[in-house]
Nucleic acid binder design. Structure first.
Lengths: 62, 62
DNA sequence: GATTTGTGTAAAGCATGCTTGACATATGGC
DNA sequence: GCCATATGTCAAGCATGCTTTACACAAATC
């Protein structure tokens, strides 16, 4: 599953660590998601979508 | 996380077993999701949303 | 009364999501 | 050169998602 997390994060000038704090996950989790190592849980996908003010469908492409 | 899976399934007159086959998961998984025992993975949430022709946000409420 | 269909649940096991701690590398400022 | 920041990765461990097998119960049909 592809996602636009890195693109959306960089648009805002945030580090992976800053995004991780905001989402209340570890920095390693943000890194793994951006690199496509695994998909987020549904609750985390909702937090990501809300943070960027987008829908889950806008950010994740199955 | 609440969801409308049971409502959407019953609107269509489907059994849990039929929905499970369509989604390519076990009947126990459908039952667990409807009863709120756990949330689906993001890929499964996408399959559910597509099947009912709705967005993930329409079906799942965090 | 026996059978079938639909639903709920439990146990055991494997796969995935997420954690902490640690280390490596690159880049930029001093 | 040294330090700080940012990123990538690994290992071990715990939590969650999903499977198969199995059993129980209710309602409908025969």
């Amino acid at each position: 599953m592809n996602n636009r997390i890195q693109e959306l994060r960089q648009q805002r000038g945030w580090s992976q660590a800053h995004l991780a704090e905001t989402l209340e996950v570890s920095r390693q989790t943000v890194n793994a998601l951006e690199r496509g190592r695994y998909d987020p849980s549904l609750p985390l996908a909702f937090r990501i979508a809300r943070l960027f003010d987008l829908t889950i469908e806008d950010i994740f492409q199955p």
